[in-house]
């Protein structure tokens, strides 16, 4: 725990929760179901450090990114930006927008097709108070920071004239040009060609090391999380199920879900016949009671079906939200791990 405090915490989330009400198909009038898209998630984003959030579709990882960027309002929980708590219901200020930036998944979709690249880069600068002449110079600097040289070659192009890798770099440049402290990247490489993915990952690594950015890297690809991140969080059904500093989580996973995830990664040394077989799953339905992974879990116990496990400390800076480790001490929230339900009531509003 000592090393976690060394880097400065730029953005902290405490017990962040977001529920959505959805209509249950077939019940037009009454039945609305509450989907706990993000449920009691706490994390620390520190300067010069990449935190990876790994999860499948439906794990709530994209909602988490939008909560952190404050383009979605949390149902409960709070955000602390450089030590200052931010009221959940307050309007998102321009200052917050310039401190915390989000890069979206689809590089082709996130550029307006009718505008040239300079519009995409200069608008944020203009909004955040730069003059017209300044903006162009700053936009060029931003393009250089993402290794697009010479910048003039890109500024007057239209998005459709550029490749996916270039557009994703421009997306990152757009986020960078307002000088954020925190960069949230929502699956930045999943839509890119295999051969250019590493380039974007290495770019993020460089920004983190050279400019002391705090980066949240959201992905479904656990191998890339292992490659890039100092901290890895695995999410399942809106909750953090496992967390570790370093690559411990990948090298020695403790939570059955993480184990399943890792066993599923295509790996030539792990033939298909050894594939875990969990049968038909509808990922949108999770257990309402107890551990949410219990219906799919191979090591399920009775307690899992009735009581939700807290996060247990399974190693140094390594926690696992699973009853298998109930003999271990419970982890505290300072480790960016949610406490047991109810205990966090004092910090939530």
């Amino acid at each position: 725990m000592s090393d976690t405090g060394s880097a400065m915490s730029e953005l902290q989330a405490r017990h962040l929760t977001r529920h959505f009400k959805i209509r249950v198909p077939g019940h037009v009038l009454s039945a609305k179901r509450i989907v706990r898209a993000v449920d009691d998630v706490s994390l620390d984003l520190r300067a010069g450090q990449v935190t990876a959030v790994v999860g499948e579709s439906g794990s709530g990882k994209s909602v988490l990114a939008r909560l952190l960027a404050r383009i979605l309002t949390p149902t409960a929980g709070e955000l602390i930006l450089r030590g200052t708590p931010i009221a959940a219901k307050a309007r998102r200020s321009l200052a917050y927008a310039s401190d915390v930036q989000l890069v979206l998944q689809d590089p082709f979709g996130s550029m307006n097709p009718v505008h040239q690249i300079h519009h995409n880069l200069i608008r944020p600068l203009r909004i955040h108070g730069a003059s017209k002449d300044e903006s162009r110079a700053l936009a060029e600097t931003a393009l250089r920071r993402v290794s697009l040289e010479p910048p003039e070659r890109f500024l007057d192009r239209f998005p459709h004239e550029l490749s996916g890798g270039q557009l994703q770099r421009i997306s990152i440049a757009r986020a960078l040009c307002v000088q954020p402290k925190v960069l949230l990247a929502d699956e930045p490489i999943s839509m890119l060609d295999v051969s250019v993915r590493l380039g974007v990952l290495n770019l993020l690594r460089g920004l983190c090391d050279d400019e002391q950015l705090a980066i949240l890297y959201i992905t479904h690809d656990i191998a890339s999380a292992r490659y890039l991140a100092e901290e890895i969080i695995v999410m399942y059904a809106g909750q953090v199920v496992e967390y570790s500093r370093g690559t411990t989580l990948v090298d020695a996973p403790t939570h059955p879900y993480t184990q399943l995830l890792i066993a599923s990664v295509p790996d030539p040394s792990n033939p298909l016949s050894m594939a875990p077989h969990v049968g038909e799953q509808n990922l949108t339905t999770f257990a309402e009671q107890g551990c949410r992974f219990s219906p799919r879990c191979a090591q399920v116990m009775d307690i899992c079906r009735t009581e939700e496990p807290p996060a247990f400390l399974v190693g140094e800076s390594h926690t696992s939200k699973c009853w298998l480790y109930r003999d271990r001490p419970e982890a505290s929230v300072e480790l960016a791990i949610p406490k047991r339900r109810g205990e966090g009531a004092t910090t939530t509003k």
Binding site: A69, I71, R92, L94, A97, S98, Q101, L102, L104, Q105, D106, G109, S110, M111, N112, P113, H115, N120, R123, P124, I127, H128, S171, R174, A175, V178
Partner: peptide, 21 residues
């Protein structure tokens, strides 16, 4: 669409998003 969301992320005002994006 993502580019509209991107405009919101950078803090663009609503009427400007409607008009220019």
């Amino acid at each position: 669409r993502d580019f509209i969301e991107a405009s919101r992320i950078i803090g663009e005002r609503r009427w400007r998003i409607m008009l220019t994006e």
